[in-house]
């Protein structure tokens, strides 16, 4: 009994056929539902990276960027490991249009 249970538990977490199907499905549905083209997603990724990189230096190895769907909600999930914080060089000036 216990061995059966452990066996199942481990096979589930080491990528059983069922688990693979479910993981792939979640990713596919997240993309389908968001209705974002791969090109749009890539351009969004580049823009976000550009913005974040103005403030911090990112570890390019560990960057992750994906859509995920959980409980019927789709989320953009980004994991952007920071290598170091850059010295602040951005001035917090008002946007163009609002200047006197």
């Amino acid at each position: 009994m216990l061995l059966d249970f452990l066996d199942q538990w481990f096979s589930r977490h080491t990528g059983s056929s069922r688990d693979q199907a479910k993981q792939r499905l979640k990713l596919i549905l997240a993309h389908d539902r968001a209705d974002l083209t791969p090109a749009a997603l890539e351009s969004m990724r580049l823009e976000i990276l550009a913005v974040v990189s103005r403030y911090v230096e990112l570890d390019s190895e560990g960057l992750q960027f994906s859509l995920a769907t959980e409980e019927g909600t789709t989320a953009l999930i980004a994991n952007l490991p920071i290598r170091r914080v850059k010295p602040l060089q951005v001035s917090l000036s008002q946007p163009e249009g609002e200047r006197a």
Binding site: Q8, S11, R12, S16, S17, R18, D19, A21, K22, L25, K26, L29, T69, E71, G72
Partner: peptide
């Protein structure tokens, strides 16, 4: 097949389709 973890379960499908 579900109990052998070879196929998605009812729970899995209901969870993703909501």
């Amino acid at each position: 097949m579900v109990s052998a973890n070879q196929m998605m379960s009812v729970e899995d499908v209901v969870e993703v389709l909501a």
